[in-house]
Design a protein around this nucleic acid. Structure first.
Length: 834
RNA sequence: GCCGGUGUGGUGGAAUUGGUAGACACAGGGGACUUAAAAUCCCCCGGCAGCAAUGCUGUACCGGUUCGAGUCCGGUCACCGGCACCA
């Protein structure tokens, strides 16, 4: 009988649709396991082959957990608000909600086609009003606790999307989505005070099991630094404060610099003799884009503030003040002290303006470059009370001194900024606030949630930067919930990150009308035991959702401080590069490719894209080989954490393996138990597969199964051997296994599907064979192998080694001085000439 | 520049964490079956030398520790990812 994957997969998917073997029961007595994957954005293009990698991996993990007796929650949903759908809707004149529904239907079909064990009764859709009701509710709680506030500030403005972007969405001065220039624009925006949680977002990383690179990336992004704020007297009547991590270098200050955006400049206008020059510099700086301003190695520019003098509190000496755009308004105090001897930026500036450079730490040559090493070895010089100290000692000493003198205080700063939460777009959650001329911003009463998006005729963003909703006067004009006078609704919507910041909670209790999640459901399922997702979401989604979770913890909605106990990350799936030079036949073709595509031509694999024509559609793969082959291949493709290249050729290997498993049914012998001759390989394989799945090493788990099947082919197998194979293969190839399970009569015997049986257990004592092959080294060089009884002692092993012809040859004329025995592995004979 | 990661056959990748490098696959070669092809089954497959047994050599490069190093230490190079005038 042939392995008819198409018929088999249809049969079992239909069966699961009815029998619902993946339903999870809140409150079940069994131990719970909550496995989570990042819910997809339902694009018009459908599922990408990148999706099945994390999906299948977590599907395998959760299937095994079920077999181990856990009550598993493995949910799926759709993160459906966002720009691509809105842009598609504008272009094709279809309502975004309609586009979204179509896309979700298509995604659902594809996910079911791949046989994932999702609990389909818990599907969540962020654009569903019954869902975003609670997104809005959480926002209102943030507002009521003072964590949402409106601020006029320079924001990142994408010239093409006509929309504000969060700092995290700006990559090298370009819009993360469309690649257009991002400029700075003054706008009034809703902000979320994530910086109030900065310390906790760093500190609590110590308590969770995240892969190290995720933790490091979050720590770097939050960018906590502890230093000292130092107050300088000036001749303006105002004191100024600078922030420094190198308070030890205070004696090396030869000037100070203020940011062009600093409000003090305007105040000081009458005192600044060269005001025209300063104002011109401010204007020039404001016109620069972020990209121009941040460009590397650029020349230092600036203007001295004539008439302004600043007094170094350590030395009592007056130093000049400059305005320069290398000082950022958004970090520290917007004013820095210039220590050209020990900061390269300051050195560049001082050199450009002919300012004195003072060495205060020995070890470098400050006439050539700044000496910036902050290690223990540097000795303080030219530094008054600090002279002779090491840098390490001088920093705390000087900090303490400054505090005692009253002009210094300890200060922690973060790179993390508050989260710009407004978007001037249609396809997002409306911000449920009303602006009343008398009462200010007033929340929409909670019983009126959800505040549903109005129907609009055009979703186009407006040129003045307002949301398309702003034109819907019927919706915008309302009454103040507090005083009843006429008022206007907020027309900005929330960013895409809002809905995804708490979706894992909704899965626990998806149909609750009275709460985002019930306390009982949250206490039973929370926290997520294992969350897998892409590295690209480390500084955006992961950080945002941790922030919301901590807030929900503070207001008593959830009982854990962290949402995710464990976080892993998968590598991308790349496509073959059609322009790769390695594919070129002749030298001329090679040259042509290099000229046309440059460095791109040097990479064998690149991101899949329509323009390159290297996109692999899961539909095609499933059609040609079946879902089980697709699943198996995407797990076998390589190390889960690393990028991998799709290969149409290699898929065949996975199909071949499944065929071989199928054909075992023709050669199986009687015997319901694991056969004696296969016991070592079967028990060893159970051990290996069991631990490999838990460590996400699916590729080696599958390799172990292949090795076992190869042995079955070489020496035959019993029904019990096949049974063990099927149980282990079940998470990877669930459809084929169920069919074989039924055909072999295992289902009839127990009345259960394979996946409802316990995960096989191994017997450690049976994993070892009676004899082992050991390596024999002479002075560390391999000279032969011997077969000896398992756990042989040194005497037996050495005797066997001497009996080996090749070993004996290399021992001729030698005297044994030492033997190193690694049990059941290797023996190393150390010899010297007689 | 800073932080993190990676470097192993023609290719994807293994290696129980210091113990037989290349498991398992893909591609390739050979054989069996077949009228034939596909499929299937079996064998070979890092490099150099050799008919062979076998020997030497080999995990980016240089050096070290060790009975023994892909793995540990010091240095160099290359590539990938993140951040980047954060004081």
């Amino acid at each position: 009988m042939k392995y008819d994957f198409a018929a088999i997969e249809k049969k079992w998917q239909d069966n699961w649709e009815v029998t619902k073997p993946y339903a999870s029961v809140t409150g079940d007595a069994a131990k719970k396991f909550y496995g989570l994957i990042e819910f997809p954005y339902p694009s018009a293009a459908g599922l990408h082959v990148g999706h099945p990698r994390p999906f299948t991996a977590m599907d395998v993990v959760t299937r095994k957990k079920r077999m181990e007796g856990y009550n598993v929650l493995f949910p799926i949903g759709f993160d459906a608000f966002g720009l691509p759908t809105e842009n598609y809707a504008i272009k094709n004149h279809i309502h975004p909600a309609v586009v979204t529904r179509q896309n979700i239907e298509n995604f659902t079909r594809q996910l079911k086609m791949l046989g994932y064990g999702f609990d389909w009764d818990r599907v969540v859709d962020t654009t569903d009003p019954t869902y975003y009701k609670w997104t809005q509710w959480i926002f209102l709680q943030l507002f009521k606790h003072g964590l949402a506030y409106k601020a006029t500030m320079p924001v990142n403005w994408c010239t093409s999307c006509k929309c504000v972007l969060a700092n995290e969405e700006v990559i090298e001065g370009k819009c993360e989505r469309c690649g257009s220039d991002v400029i700075r624009k003054e706008k009034s925006q809703w902000m979320l005070a994530i910086t109030k949680y900065a310390d906790r977002l760093v500190d609590d990383l110590d308590d969770v099991d995240f892969i190290e690179r995720v933790k490091t990336q979050q720590r770097n992004w939050i960018g906590r630094s502890t230093g000292t704020e130092v107050t300088f007297r000036t001749n303006t009547g105002d004191d100024i404060t600078v922030y420094t991590t190198r308070v030890d270098t205070l004696y090396g200050v030869t000037y100070t610099v203020i940011s062009p955006e600093h409000p003090l400049l305007k105040k000081w206008q009458p005192l600044i003799k060269n005001w025209d020059e300063v104002a011109a510099y401010q204007l020039a700086a404001s016109k620069k884009s972020d990209f121009e301003r941040g460009e590397l190695n650029k020349e230092k520019t600036g203007v001295r503030l004539e008439g302004i003098e600043v007094v170094n509190p350590a030395t009592g000496e007056a130093v000049p003040m400059f305005v320069s755009d290398y000082v950022l308004m958004g970090y520290g105090t917007g004013i820095v002290m210039g220590v050209p001897g020990h900061d390269q930026r300051d050195w560049d500036f001082a050199t450009a303006f002919g300012l004195p450079i003072v060495e205060v730490v020995q070890g470098g040559d400050v006439t050539k470059e700044a000496f910036t090493l902050k290690d223990d070895t540097g000795i303080m010089v030219n530094s008054g009370i600090l002279n002779g100290m090491t840098v390490k000692d001088a920093i705390p000493y000087m900090k303490q001194y400054a505090i005692e003198q009253g002009w210094g205080r300890e200060k922690t700063n973060f790179k993390l900024r508050d989260w710009v939460f407004s978007r001037q777009r249609y396809w997002g959650e409306p911000i449920p606030l009303v602006n009343c001329p008398d009462c200010g911003w007033v929340p929409v009463p909670e019983e009126q949630l959800p505040l549903v998006l109005p129907q609009v005729d055009s979703y186009e963003p407006t040129d003045d930067g307002e949301s398309p909703i702003s034109k819907m006067t019927d919706w915008v004009n309302t009454t103040c919930p507090k005083c009843g006078k006429s008022a206007k609704r907020e027309t900005d919507t929330m960013p895409q990150w809002a809905g995804s910041s708490w979706y894992y909670l909704r899965y626990m209790d998806p149909h609750n009308d009275n709460a985002a999640v019930s306390r009982e459901a949250e206490e039973y399922w929370g926290p997520v035991d294992w969350y897998n997702g892409g590295m690209e979401h480390t500084t955006l989604h992961l950080l945002y959702s941790r922030f919301w979770h901590k807030f929900l913890y503070d207001i008593g909605v959830v009982h854990t401080r962290e949402p995710y106990a464990k976080r892993t990350s998968h590598g991308m799936i790349l496509g073959q590069n059609p322009h790769y030079v390695g594919n070129a036949g002749t030298e001329e073709e090679k040259q042509a490719l290099l000229e046309k595509y440059g460095n791109q031509a040097l990479r064998p694999a690149v991101k899949m894209s329509k323009s390159l024509g290297n996109v692999v559609n899961p539909d095609d793969v499933v059609k040609a080989y079946g879902a089980d082959t697709m699943r198996l291949y995407i797990m076998f493709i390589g190390d889960f954490e690393k990028t991998a290249t799709w290969s149409d050729e290699a898929v065949k290997g996975s199909k071949r393996f499944l065929d071989r498993c199928w054909n075992l049914m023709d050669m199986v012998a009687d015997g319901e138990e694991i056969s004696e001759k296969n016991a070592p390989i079967v028990h060893k394989t159970i051990k290996k597969v069991t631990s490999d799945i838990d460590e996400l090493k699916m590729n080696t788990a599958i390799a172990a199964l292949m090795t076992m099947v190869n042995e079955f082919y070489a020496g035959g197998l019993s029904r019990g051997d096949l049974r063990a194979l099927l149980l282990m293969l079940s998470p990877f190839a669930p459809h084929m296994v169920e069919e074989m399970w039924e055909l072999m009569g295992f289902a009839a015997a127990t009345g259960k599907m394979a996946m409802q049986n316990p995960w096989p257990e191994y017997d450690e004592s049976k994993t070892v064979a009676a004899t082992v092959e050991m390596a024999v080294q002479v002075k560390g060089k391999l000279r032969g192998t011997i077969t000896v009884p398992t756990d042989s002692d040194e005497e037996t092993v050495v005797a066997a080694a001497r009996a080996n012809e090749k070993v004996a040859k290399s021992l001729e004329g030698m005297q044994l001085v030492k033997t190193i025995l690694v049990k059941n592995k290797l023996v190393n004979l150390i010899v010297k000439p007689v």
